[in-house]
Design a protein around this nucleic acid. Sequence first.
RNA 1: GGCCGGUUCGUCUAUCGGUUAGGACAGCCCCCUUUCACGGGGCAAAGACGGGUUCGAUUCCCGUACCGGCUACCA
Length: 510
Amino acid sequence: MSKKVRVRFAPSPTGGLHLGGVRTVLFNYLFAKQQGGDFILRIEDTDQGRFVPGAEEYILDTLRWCGLEPDESPVHGGPYAPYRQSERKPSYRQYAEQLVKDGYAYYAFDTPAELEEMRVRFKTAENPSPQYNQQIREQMRNSLTLDAGETQRLLAEGTPHVIRIKMPANETIRFTDMIRGEVSFHTSQVDDKVLLKADGMPTYHLAVVVDDYAMKITHAFRGEEWLPSAPVHLLVWKYLGWESEMPEWAHLPLILKPDGNGKLSKRDGDRLGFPVFAMDWTDPKTGETTIGFKERGFLPEAFVNLLAMLGWNDGTDNEIFSLPELIEKFSIERVHKGGAKFDYEKAKWYNHEWIKKLGVGSLELGVKAEFEKKGILIADEDALLPKVIELVKDRCTLLPDFVQQGSFFFQAPTTVEVDAIKPKWDDKKNLFFTELIRGYELSNTWEAQGLENEFKELAAANHLKPGELMLPFRIMLVGGKFGPGVFDIAALIGMYETVNRIKHTLGLLQ
RNA sequence: GGCCGGUUCGUCUAUCGGUUAGGACAGCCCCCUUUCACGGGGCAAAGACGGGUUCGAUUCCCGUACCGGCUACCA
């Protein structure tokens, strides 16, 4: 019996959660749930300069909307608290010091200015970004170059310093990535990353190891951008003596911008006109709001579905999966290695599929909200809405489309495209509609088929082709050339509205 | 520049050495529809390049090219 699977998503609370982040959550979640494991949310707030108020709540809200609720988190609690790195601060220093004591790390007293100077000094055409590595560290102010007494003095005086990992000279670090297979790095090419910052906070490199260890994480999923620093993490696991408990790693492929190349960013969404964040995010500093998939009218089912298909498939032609189906079918072996360009058109297709697939009941709340956003109030006891949804859902891609496709059921069209009728309008047609009004007003039943029969009989009696009359009728009822079957519409809006709208348009045609 | 990773239609992808290289989105055409959609049918569209290995490579290996990621006291 192997130990219980525990995975974590560890975002830093710096702003809205974007597509790539949510997909990382998704793959974490799917893997954990399939294995009967736990999904943990851990907030990586070690960079106090980048902390953004509200971001943590936003992340929780987003996960909730997606249906990817954590088993443990800062708000859900759990046996491995704290779930915010800042609250674990005291313990990081201890581990960093231990590494120094064991000779795996060292104190560095270089000031930011000195580091900058080093980068300038060693910068050449061949080496545009010099690293604090095995060669360079010999020329810097650290406990490797300073004698012990001097180091002690500086520390005793409270000189600002960081703790850096001391990369071994000549080792090959290998590990098996669940997605990429065997990956290896040579330590001579890896720099001495800072583990503990001058403010006493750990960098990601230390914190991720200490926290994953403390929280008994068994599998670590993260974006491909972390691959280059993996050897640092592997070494920290080893140096801290925890190697046997190190999680398995999986580096997920990136989500790329649709045009050109490169990681998808918020900017691309702004530029190309599609959301990148899961939900609306308002920057507390600028007050600027960035649109989210939710507010654009995406269903969480579709959002999760489309994210899952960015880099994974089950090997069949099936593309539509519910969350439970994904949990059942997901396999890390089938996750791609290469990045995927985000295609907004395809994203909309997923939403359309889900709108068609979902029953009226699941759509009702969201659709009602869209109408109310546009100032069209729909009473709870109004039985009309479900019928309208049923009638128009097949032609709606995003939630706001329901307003476009269905507002005329609730209120007479504000503009009527009479110009589409006028050219072929004549007295015979005018007479027909006048008689139609009289006929409809006398109807003792009011349902689509009956209305259609009556319409056609009257047309025949007037020696008119129904085809010439349907379009005008449609325009009278909905205002334009769109919508479901005209008689279905007439049946739903009722005799009073039907007759009124005909009369109104007849007036416009005078 | 260095290190690491990646590379099948425009896009997302299937293929676990032998296929007319399949599906989906988008595009175009047709049908259905007395509107617009939905739906149905069809067309067009791909293995970066060069070497190996092999009876046979999209598939395995090497090189090249191209793309990306990283190269912070950010994650």
